[in-house]
Computed example of a mutant assay.
Amino acid sequence: MCGAPDGRGRPVRVTVNRVLLALTGLALLVLGGSVLAVGLGAPAPSWWIHDGRHDVLLDQAERTRWRDDAWWWPTVIAVLAVLLILALWWLTAVLRRRRLAEVLVDTGDGAGAQLRGGALQSVVRAEASALDGVSRAHVRLKGRPNAPSARIRLVLEPHAAPATTLDELTTGTLTHAKDSARLDALPAVIRMSSARHKAERVS
């Protein structure tokens, strides 16, 4: 899917993500450094929640304060579970964004266009899967919008000739993708493995 280039959305998400990571890292660094310093004998700062190095995180009074309130510990556990789920969702979102979201296409008029990375991946995967001797193909685009690269994994049938398949993939599939997106180059890391078939019982 093509569209007019809009460079605002992705940089804003990247900036927000980096700011959140920086603030989280700074908070953890200050908290962890304070715990370490107090534990080694440094005087506790005025804002510290405990009095000194021999103070415990939760004393007996704090641990038993809400014992008679049935809602307290379930609420604490639920809040911690929600925070854990949000952290895992954030991590998953960050890892997913490592894949190339769009490819910048030079239309020749100076304006350019954006091609969805998933669309180009699907085209390359479909054409690679159609090669003779290829059982399955997995394609992932990485890099920058104006300089993408591909990681391709092919699962070959027993009769496939790896050298021939590699030649057809590089001179055919990847060249078609490069030319259709008007890229100067489309470097690729290609891995091949053999398909495993279950042995059939012959009676």
Rank of each mutant, 00 (worst) to 15 (best):
L86M: 09
S203P: 11
E157A: 13
S122Y: 08
L58H: 10
V189Y: 03
I77M: 08
V12M: 11
A70L: 11
P74R: 12
R153N: 05
D179N: 14
G108I: 01
A181C: 14
L183C: 08
V82L: 15
V56W: 03
E127R: 15
G118V: 07
L120V: 09
M192Q: 15
V38I: 13
G108L: 03
R99C: 06
V139E: 14
T24Y: 00
G3Y: 14
I77L: 11
L83N: 02
L88H: 04
T75D: 07
G7Y: 08
A185Q: 15
P145M: 10
G3A: 02
W66P: 00
L95R: 15
R65H: 11
D59C: 00
A128G: 11
V139P: 04
A199F: 08
A181L: 02
L58F: 15
V35T: 12
I152G: 02
G33M: 11
A188E: 09
D59F: 13
R136N: 08
V14M: 14
R144T: 13
L169F: 14
A81H: 14
T92S: 11
L141I: 09
G25F: 13
E62N: 04
P187N: 03
V94S: 08
G52W: 14
V30L: 14
W73G: 00
V103E: 07
L84A: 09
Q60W: 03
W71L: 15
P162W: 05
L186A: 01
H138Y: 08
D132F: 00
R125F: 01
T165E: 05
P45H: 15
A70T: 06
A163R: 06
G41R: 15
R153P: 01
I85Q: 05
D167F: 13
L86V: 12
V123Q: 12
W89T: 11
C2S: 10
L91I: 04
A150Q: 03
R144N: 03
I152T: 07
T175E: 14
A111Y: 00
L115Q: 15
L186P: 02
R182M: 01
